[in-house]
Amino acid sequence: MTVRSDTSFRSAVSTDAPLKPGFADPVFDSQAVFRDLLVATAYPGRIVSLDRKLTAPRPFSSATAALCLSLMDFETPAWLDTGLDNNELTAWLRFHCSLPLTKTAANARFAIVSDPANLPPLQAFHQGDVEYPDRSTTLIIQVPSLADGPAMTWMGPGINGSIKVGIAGLPPQFWTDWDLNRELYPRGIDVFFTSGNDLIGLPRTIKVEA
């Protein structure tokens, strides 16, 4: 029997600017990026450099774009901090991910924040249900650097003892919101920080101290 990779074809969409490409090989690129995301979630705080690099639509970084391609589809309504007016970006997400976009943060399975200055309070997103805490929003925050920000101490599942992490560019109330998020456990949102072609996972279980 033959093993093939499922390169789903789609009819071309007419837009003014040519659409940025997605994965060159959807099957194996998605798998490789997913494994990086798995490692980032399993070992929070570690900088994971992605295996694949993309020419992303503005304002997305390569890592943000790869994460979208790897995890999102018609089943995962997403919220964007850029709103829905960025035609290049929304066309790219619709074309490559068949992604439904929502204006309501609380309905989003994924939320993508490309400028942390626009970050709403974490409590604006879906916190998950008491009986189904897995239904919460996964938040992707694109930051200027994963290392140059104030060093914080992270502790919790996936971390052997503790680890110092310096996420840059977060609004001051972010970590206060994070403490509130932890109080909701097992409900709560989960975060990926992306920068360039790197990312860091911050699941809801992680305790962060200055």
Partner: peptide, 21 residues
């Protein structure tokens, strides 16, 4: 199929985020 894999991959990430659930 790829859609099924994505659905399971999202499940795996949520599973790691809520250990034992």
């Amino acid at each position: 199929d790829e859609q099924t894999k994505r659905m399971i991959r999202r499940t795996l990430l949520k599973a790691l985020s809520i250990p034992g659930y």
